[in-house]
Amino acid sequence: MRLLVIEDDTTTGGYIARGLREEGHTVDLVDNGRDGLVQATAGTYDVMIVDRMLPEIDGLTLMKTLRGAGNRTPALFLTSLGSVEDRIDGLNAGGDDYLTKPFAFGELSARVAALARRPQAIEQNTVLSAGDLTMDLVTRQVTRAGQKIDLLPREFALLEHLLRRKGRVQTRTMLLEAVWDISFDPKTNVVETHISRLRAKVDRPFDTELIQTLRGAGYRIDA
């Protein structure tokens, strides 16, 4: 996953970033709200970890600004402010979860993973695309370079999931949970089989491959 950590305490920020990187994640770390807002707006992240008490722009204002601009990246507030009212303020500002300091890194990691597994809010746009590939969610028609592509329901759901997260790596676990509603590893190659079938229809007849495999990480669709 690609994660954004906005934390002004150097020791805490370094500790979080180091631990998440050791788990294999890509982590961007910034130490103030203004830079955090810029980074969150410019980049594509799976989850944000946001401190409440930030210089330049505080965490609540940062989240309200992002949500007002349409940014729906899941966000975990991390703060020493732990009263019920503080948690309510954080959630009302647009946070998806709330963890108070001091915290156990294992719990932080688990909460980040849980946020990443949550289905993203359905976008208002009814047409998804990548390069010359287009998916109309209303007519459920898929075309590439003007040619109609017939997909089975599960293939359509898999392609839709990838298109909604264009450019972002989706792990096997993410795909199992989002497309098959399976929260455990069934020890089958169902994901690989459907990716192969999807490639045969979406990529093989054309010059450019859109569905990419990142060995040891997962899959993504990108033009």
Rank of each mutant, 00 (worst) to 15 (best):
G13E: 09
G14A: 08
I16N: 13
A17T: 15
G19S: 11
G19M: 05
E23R: 13
G24E: 04
D28N: 08
V30F: 04
R34I: 06
R34S: 14
D35Q: 11
V38R: 13
V38C: 02
A42N: 10
G43L: 12
T44P: 00
D46S: 11
M48K: 01
R52W: 05
L54Q: 05
E56V: 09
L62W: 00
L62S: 03
M63N: 01
R67Q: 07
G70M: 11
P74D: 10
P74A: 08
F77R: 01
F77C: 01
L78T: 01
T79M: 05
G82D: 04
V84R: 12
D86Q: 00
I88R: 02
D89P: 00
A93S: 11
G95D: 01
D96S: 04
D96L: 03
D97Q: 13
D97I: 06
T100A: 03
F103H: 03
E107M: 12
L108A: 14
A110F: 00
R111Y: 03
R118E: 08
I122Q: 14
N125D: 11
N125Q: 15
N125L: 09
L128V: 06
L137V: 04
R140S: 13
Q141L: 08
Q141I: 15
V142Q: 05
Q147Y: 01
I149L: 14
I149V: 15
F156D: 01
L158H: 06
L158N: 07
L159W: 06
L159R: 08
E160V: 04
R165Q: 12
G167T: 10
V169T: 13
T171Y: 09
T173L: 04
L176C: 07
V179T: 10
V179W: 14
S183M: 10
E192G: 13
S196A: 14
L198F: 11
R199G: 11
A200N: 14
D207C: 03
T208H: 13
I211G: 02
L214S: 01
G216N: 07
Y219L: 09
R220F: 14
